[in-house]
Simulated scan of single mutants.
Amino acid sequence: MDDMRNVMSRIDKSGEGVYVQASTLGSLEALLEFLKTPAVSIPVSGIGIGPVHKKDVMKASVMLERKKEYATILAFDVKVTPEARELADDLGVTIFIADIIYHLFDQFKAYIDNLKEEKKKEAAEDAVFPCVLQIMPNCVFNKKDPIILGVDVIDGILKIGTPICIPQREFIDIGRISSIENNHKPVDYAKKGQKVAIKITGSNAEEQQKMFGRHFEMEDQLVSHISRSSIDVLKANYRDELSNEEWKLVVKLKHLFKIQ
């Protein structure tokens, strides 16, 4: 009973986590101990001993509503009944099976990494990275759509697809970055301190196309047009990809755009 109480105490109090199944109480304890280590840190919402049955799949399926990536069963050294496998496939519960703890973790980690990549791809269109650009002297190569300029990345990270606006000109939008060149070579992004050539393409054919010399001038800074939703997308999907300095720029731009 003491062993069982010890095992039950490992279940995450929030109720969110994976479902864990093992062949014996001892192997269940070993797996839970491994999942709890800081390097692994996978929360557990439920446990079971013996083969994976339909009832275990039903318990794991609760996570489909709460945190979909945790709608999984880590089955350590146990069999999965055909009925349980069929129900898991129908409900969308993922079952990982292994008789070595590390292999279970590797499978789960690969699964989570893959989910993150898929989320990133879905969110890519809505992700706006923070950047501040300054037009360089004698580097205006085309004044109207597509506007082609040589710029100095004053702050942040410039990426293809970034919507650009001019804060000094009542935040007028001039289009999106459609290409970046560094030393005449196409690149996907440019960071603070780099000098690059950019092409800005008008984002809306119905609107009047913006033009250098009419809508903005040499001294005007070009800034990525962030929004509340684009900040949320960065936080959810790109938190680790931005440096502390780049996050500070997000906060600075948030104030500039008066985003709540």
Results as ranks from 00 to 15, higher is better:
67 K>A: 12
33 E>C: 11
230 S>T: 06
187 V>R: 01
127 A>N: 02
139 C>Y: 01
238 Y>M: 13
191 K>C: 10
177 I>R: 01
114 N>W: 14
184 H>I: 01
76 F>W: 04
242 L>Q: 00
59 K>T: 14
192 K>H: 06
155 D>M: 06
196 V>E: 01
246 E>T: 08
35 L>C: 12
258 K>R: 14
198 I>Y: 00
218 M>G: 04
178 S>Y: 03
178 S>L: 03
137 P>H: 13
48 G>Q: 02
246 E>K: 11
214 R>D: 12
39 A>W: 02
70 Y>I: 02
42 I>A: 07
151 V>H: 01
238 Y>C: 10
207 E>A: 08
83 E>Y: 10
121 K>D: 15
208 Q>V: 15
130 P>G: 05
225 H>S: 10
20 V>D: 02
171 F>K: 13
169 R>N: 07
39 A>R: 11
3 D>E: 14
110 A>G: 14
84 A>K: 07
239 R>C: 08
69 E>D: 13
222 L>W: 06
182 N>L: 13
163 P>I: 07
83 E>P: 02
191 K>V: 15
96 F>P: 10
85 R>E: 09
88 A>M: 03
174 I>G: 07
111 Y>F: 15
49 I>W: 06
101 I>S: 01
41 S>Y: 09
29 E>Y: 12
158 L>I: 02
230 S>V: 04
121 K>H: 15
87 L>Q: 06
58 M>H: 08
122 E>D: 09
141 F>M: 04
170 E>M: 10
132 V>E: 11
116 K>C: 06
15 G>Q: 04
32 L>P: 09
201 T>W: 03
78 V>K: 06
205 A>E: 15
99 D>K: 15
238 Y>G: 08
26 G>L: 08
222 L>A: 06
39 A>F: 04
229 S>P: 08
62 V>I: 13
114 N>I: 06
139 C>Q: 11
